[in-house]
Amino acid sequence: MEYFIQQLINGITLGGMYALIALGYTMVYGVIQLINFAHGEFFAAGGYVGAIALAYFAGVGYMDSHPVICLTASFLIAMAYCAYLAVGVEKIAYKPLRKNSRLAALLSALGMSIFLSNGMMLTQGVYDKVYPGELFQGRFDFGMISISYLQIMIVSLTAILLVSLNLLVFKTKIGMAMRATAQDKTMSALVAIGSNRIISLTFAIGAGLAAAAGIMYGLYYGSVKYDMGFIPGIKAFSAAVLGGIGNITGAMIGGLIIGMVEIFGAGYISGEYKDVFAFIILIGVLYFKPNGIMGENIDDTRV
């Protein structure tokens, strides 16, 4: 039982991170029907900028006196940086291709992913970038179960971000505009919603969430590396599809499911086949519910 609970905690932490990344995929997909392969790189870039900012704060000496402020500032800086990056990437690599076939944009995204990860390698070096380790050290122990402060921090921050995103999308005017654009671009243009602005905004928000996930990842695993975006990117994309692509609640649930399946697969059956279990669940769900768990929410003009 203790073993089960411990694995459950592990699963929630990992799943939360996947969910944050998956949101970016699903939101972008919702508005322009593009699998943004470069999204994993936004996640990695967020991790890097977080590491750079934290190291800088430690270097000037603010870290010891105001750790919480520094951490918050790092989060904000990384999220802003990634939003800035994503908006530019969208303008350069995706916007000119919006009228062409979706595969062209997909390829451009793949090229962007290769370009960004190698750009990070060249500017930041091939070695891992280390996160300062003093933050949130320590853990609660309940018998065999242990929960680190970091895990609590990550899960609660993830929850806060998810709730605020939900509020943004479902309770504000901007959110309504985003949903409208996702459902029908022509109609939303008719009611004076600038689709370019909304698309940029969607990219910015998605990348910002990925950046937050990147910093949490760095804190949790101790370091970041230029190629770290790729595998979580694929997992998060699976999570987005599992939940029903374009569906924000679906992405959260999908992320948690993929995280759990991976942890329980590794913990109870076999570590080397854990990705197989995740994909089998994905295929199984899609076989019986071809639109994902929560159903999709996109503008599909072809049907």
Binding site: Y3, Q6, Q7, N10, T13, L14, M144, Y217, Y221, M228, F230, I231, P232, E262, I263, F264, G265, A266, G267, S270, G271, E272, K274, D275
Partner: peptide, 20 residues
């Protein structure tokens, strides 16, 4: 004798097993 995959970053499942 457990295995993880190349490129994995999260080892919590196998480590929980080892701790047990």
């Amino acid at each position: 004798h457990e295995h993880v995959n190349q490129g994995d970053k999260d080892f919590s499942a196998v480590l929980t097993m080892a701790k047990q």
